[in-house]
Amino acid sequence: MTLLPDSLPDAEAQCLQLAEAIRPSLSKNPALVGIFSGGVWIAERLRALLGLSDDIGMIDVSFYRDDFAEKGLHPQCRPTTIPFDVQDRHIILVDDVLYTGRTTRAAINELFDYGRPASVQLAVLADRGGRELPIDKSFPAWDVTLAEGANLVLERNPQGLLAWRLENA
């Protein structure tokens, strides 16, 4: 079944569900690291919902991508910032859409250049399948099948609310 633009779920409600899925892990004092840009927005939302004290980390994987040789450097890369000590910390990587797994691989590599985390988990809002690496999400998400050439994009409106948009090639 093809996903239609007007049948997209509420991303804000999905953030609430994801926060509840993560809540049992709070005893491990996890730290959140969002992957630019959608993952950062979601991580900010999760931090507020879960009342975490550490600021979130933000990763731009441009320097760790595996398609540099084909595509070159992304023209708009942003500084990665990890405002806490990664060593021995339980880390939850946050992204908007899980697809091939290559972005997650790059983010994990980058994270390890800051130290050796105790564990790394992956939280996403949507999983569109199509994995090319042995990587999976750690918390339940919206499993969605997209038509060929379609793309799922998370956007943040001027009021700061998150919403999905469907792009068709």
Binding site: F63, F68, Q76, R78, Y114
Partner: peptide, 23 residues
């Protein structure tokens, strides 16, 4: 501007323990 913006991201790399990226 692209060069200056990219350099800003590399400034962060130079402040890490592991001052290397695999590009």
């Amino acid at each position: 501007t692209q060069i200056l913006d990219t350099a800003a991201s590399f400034m962060e790399v130079s402040s890490r323990d592991v001052k290397k990226v695999p590009l």
